[in-house]
Structures are given as C-alpha cells and as structure tokens.
C-alpha cells in the first residue's frame, strides 16, 4: 500500500532535486526558477496522488475531459503535457541570466586559450623561461 506512495513522492522530489542541482548558480541559487520548479514538482505530486487516491469510477457514462476520463486526463494532460508549457519556456526565458551568457562562454574560451598556450610552452625546449614557469604551475597543480 505504501510503496507506490514512496515513488509518487520520491520521483517528483528526485527530479526536482536534480533540476535544482543543475540550475543553481553559486550564491544566486535558482533565482526565479523556483516558481516553475515548484509548480512542476507540485503538479507531479498532485497528479500521481490523484491517480492513487481517486476512486475508479470509469465507465461508459463517465464525464470526459478533453476526450479522456478524469483520472486518465490528470495523468496524460497534467503530468505528460502541462510541464511542456512551463519548464522549457522557463528555461528559455531565464537562459541569459540563469544558465549561460556570452560572457560565460568567453571566460571558458579564454581559459582554454591560456591552457593551450601552457601546453604549447611545455612542448618547447626546457631552456625557455616561459616553459619552466608553465612546468612549475603544472607540477604545483599535480602536487595538490
């Protein structure tokens, strides 16, 4: 009896947790994303909970919601379709501030250029001062 409830509560918690882990940016946390995250986690809990608790009254005279009986409609539309109109749009709307900006990409590219320069220097003869400094930096990092 209790086992499905563990999953019905655990799945939204696990999915919410991993999305929060992925979307968190330092001290800023998830910022405005807490609203769509909360909404979708709640939708999943309500959807699974309703499917587990509502009585099985499906029959030929059942009222249909967009072509499906109530419990099926909650699952198909509430769990399967509604999040599509919330999460990907929230992702796109917050992308520049919360996920990735042109400055972020440039920082990574700059570090890649520095690393490449270090590698190139390491490949040069050992009398090069730059190469020796690069080696020292590398050795220090390895020692850590």
């Amino acid at each position: 009896m209790w086992a499905p409830w563990l999953l019905a509560l655990g799945i939204p918690a696990a999915l919410g947790a991993i999305m929060i882990l992925g979307a968190t940016r330092g001290d800023r946390g998830v910022g405005p994303l807490k609203i769509p995250f909360g909404f979708v986690i709640l939708m999943l809990v309500i959807g699974f909970g309703a499917a587990l608790t509502l009585p099985a009254t499906e029959g030929p005279l059942s009222r249909l919601w967009l072509g499906l009986p109530a419990r099926a409609a909650i699952v198909i539309y509430g769990i399967g379709l509604l999040p599509i109109f919330v999460l990907p749009i929230a992702y796109a709307l917050t992308f520049d501030t919360q996920t990735l900006s042109a400055e972020d990409v440039e920082r990574v590219r700059e570090l890649a250029r520095v690393n490449q320069a270090e590698k190139d220097m390491l490949a040069t003869p050992p009398q090069s001062v730059g190469a020796n400094e690069a080696r020292k930096r590398r050795d220090k990092r390895m020692a850590e």
Binding site: M19, P83, L87, Y91, V108, R109, L111, A112
Partner: peptide, 21 residues
Amino acid sequence: AVTNVMGAWVLAKRMRLLGEA
C-alpha cells in the same frame, strides 16, 4: 515532458562548455 529540459539544465551547458575548454 520533463527529461529534455532537465538534461539541458543538468548536462547540456556543462558538456558543451567542456567541449569548448
């Protein structure tokens, strides 16, 4: 409904930037 955007938050940016770096 959830997995693609979840993958984007959790993996896409970091994988793509690792490819860059």
